[in-house]
Design a protein around this nucleic acid. Structure first.
Lengths: 143, 143
DNA sequence: GTTACTTCCGTAGTCCGCTACGGAGTCAAG
DNA sequence: CTTGACTCCGTAGCGGACTACGGAAGTAAC
């Protein structure tokens, strides 16, 4: 069903996904991405699905997931038994929501700071640290 | 103005912030957290502000920031000149918003998956990879 | 003042995630 | 069928973020 035209060599794949060839091999060893059969003569070919998968790994990494966690996530993509899968998904969902929440706080404070700076360009400070633990998920303390 | 009662030794600080003592020292060496004066006789003391700062570093890390980036963010907290600060803040703001966006996509798909699993507990797959690059922030491809 | 626990500090080791290297095999162009 | 670019594969090295270790000095409790 996927792999319309697996025509890329590993070098082409690397360029397309904007990663190092060696990184691809490394991911293959770690089973994060599949290693296609090596045909009789000898060179593996890759397709669009492989590009996507690589880019997913990279993105997830930037979001603070380790390669192990990413491999968990990819198991969901790959289809696992529903019970384990949903337990895992629920767990990851909590992680993700917490990250979003924290990032939201940081965003708010950074945004305010930028505004303030534009409003009156003197020295100011940015209560970033405090942002991460004021009450629930939206509100504002008496500040 | 801050540091109401700097009464913790490094060990207490470590416990309070839930990090390793050695990690604190490491952060001190990297100037991520301040290293208080060592008083005449000899042992440094820490207070609430230090706990917060450490916890900020840990959280930011889980959000995918490197220690270098975190040190940037902390410069904002510490107060810098408005011009540089706001440029940096705007840049980080973009980063943060992108992260939120991507996490939002992942959240959506994970959420749907969990639902599906509850609805009919068979094997299913989870189009996680695709989630990261479908148009704006809501749409859906024809697949 | 002795004992037991910390702190201090420098240096060395570990784990993760790559990245580099070297040599043999493959393939396409001329 | 040679040449040059690329692939394959194993192993080694590197940078980031810790973590462990060891000895000297501080400090608290008896």
């Amino acid at each position: 069903m996927p792999d319309k035209a697996n025509s890329l060599t590993i070098g082409g794949l690397a360029k397309a996904a904007n990663v190092h060839i060696e990184t691809i091999r490394y991911y293959q060893r770690r089973r994060l991405v599949p290693e296609p059969e090596r045909p009789p003569g000898g060179i593996r070919r890759y397709g669009p699905a492989d590009i996507e998968r690589l880019m997913f790994v990279k993105t997830a990494q930037q979001l603070g997931f380790s390669l192990v966690e990413i491999s968990d996530l990819l198991q969901l993509e790959d289809g696992a038994h529903c019970q384990e899968a949903s337990a895992l998904a629920e767990h990851k969902l909590r992680d993700v929501r917490e990250k979003i929440d924290q990032l939201g706080r940081i965003e708010k404070v950074l945004g305010e700071m930028v505004e303030q700076c534009h409003a009156h360009p003197y020295n100011i400070t940015c209560p970033l640290i405090a942002s991460l633990h004021e009450g629930g998920s939206g509100g504002g303390r008496s500040t």
